[in-house]
Computed example of a mutant assay.
Amino acid sequence: MTRHRIFDMSFASIYPLYITKVERKGHTQEELDQVLTWLTGYDSAALQQTITEEITLEEFFDRAPEMNPNVDLITGVICGIRVEEIEDPLMQKIRYMDKLVDEVARGKKMTSILRKPVAA
């Protein structure tokens, strides 16, 4: 399997782009951080530490305290590819993150972004 260059990009280089994207659409860094903590289990201090340490995206997800158990409820298209069909686990996590950031920027309700499983 091909190693993608994005795996070696630092989270610190991508995070400001995410902030710009959500703020340009009238949303906040706090909303962004909320979805990132939901996805990865990092708290605000740990998120800031990943930025300070300039860890790669691969390390960011390897060190994540706990991926949210409802992550498989994230569906849809990002970069022309359905996120639920991405075979590389790391690339899928990165695209899940992109998808959540897009949803914040589009103004989707936070209750919808932070997916809750449908009660049986």
Rank of each mutant, 00 (worst) to 15 (best):
V35A: 02
T50I: 01
D43I: 03
E30A: 14
E84C: 08
P69I: 11
P117T: 07
Q29A: 06
P117L: 03
D72N: 14
E58A: 12
L32M: 02
L39W: 02
T52C: 04
Y15N: 01
H4P: 04
R24V: 00
T56C: 05
I6Y: 05
C79Y: 09
Q92I: 03
Q48K: 14
D102A: 03
G107N: 02
S44G: 07
T28R: 02
P16R: 00
D88M: 02
T111A: 06
V71D: 12
A119Y: 12
R115P: 06
L32K: 04
R63T: 11
M91T: 10
P117Q: 08
G80P: 15
G76F: 03
S13F: 01
T2P: 13
E54N: 14
V77W: 08
P65D: 08
S13W: 00
D98T: 10
I94R: 02
V101M: 01
E54D: 11
M1V: 13
D62F: 11
T52M: 10
V118G: 05
K109E: 14
D33Q: 13
A45E: 12
G41S: 07
G107I: 00
I74C: 06
P89W: 07
L57K: 03
F7K: 07
D33C: 02
E66V: 08
K21V: 01
G80K: 06
E84T: 10
L32G: 00
T56Y: 09
